[in-house]
């Protein structure tokens, strides 16, 4: 399970990619996340070759979007999940999946440290809650996220406490909107 210290370190790596195009930081993220992204893609039904190619593409996208990562709204693993998931769908459809607009922090403003810490805490708690779900229920959630269920089969009731993390993200969004005015 990811500790908060670990999460803060990864967020720092992304920041260094953004600020200094730091290859060492990228390599550290790559060595941890790329094997997981590839496993996720293979579980989602991709062949080994496609999963490898898609992993490389997703990790390259991480570099190109490093400046858009907002640690007050997503953990590093959540952000990488969204990139990998979108890449997978883009490749399957051979066209870009419809994605919500980006709302990045401007050059002169950035998220408050307390919001970042709070989100990292909530993410760690969510991971813990997932690990503690009864086996059957956990497998069902994983199945949904590996794309094994159709949209009509998905039950949004996961048994996971999503209310607090949602409120945290909502608050972070409000501060971001405020800074844009």
């Amino acid at each position: 399970m990811v500790t908060q210290e670990q999460e803060a370190e990864w967020a720092g790596h992304i920041r260094r990619i953004h600020e200094a195009r730091d290859q060492a930081a990228f390599k550290a993220l790559f060595s941890h996340f790329a094997p997981r992204v590839k496993a996720f893609l293979m579980k989602s039904g991709a062949s080994e070759t496609l999963a490898e190619e898609c992993t490389q593409e997703a990790m390259a996208t991480l570099w190109r979007k490093a400046h858009l990562f907002d640690p007050s709204r997503a953990s590093v693993s959540t952000w990488i999940f969204t990139i990998a998931r979108n890449r997978r769908i883009d490749m399957l459809r051979k066209q870009r999946r419809p994605k919500p607009e980006d709302i990045p922090w401007g050059p002169e403003a950035e998220p408050a440290q307390e919001d970042v810490v709070a989100l990292q805490q909530e993410s760690a708690q969510l991971a813990k809650a997932l690990a503690e779900l009864p086996k059957k229920q956990r497998e069902l959630v994983e199945k949904a996220y590996f794309g094994d269920l159709s949209h009509s089969q998905i039950a949004a009731e996961t048994g996971l406490p999503l209310g607090t993390i949602k409120s945290r993200i909502r608050l972070a969004l409000e501060r971001l909107r405020h800074s844009m005015k």
């Binding site: 693993s77 997932l130 690990a131």
Partner: peptide
């Protein structure tokens, strides 16, 4: 999406 992050991490 945060569930997806936890799943990928796990």
């Amino acid at each position: 999406d945060a569930i997806g992050g936890a799943v990928i991490e796990d």
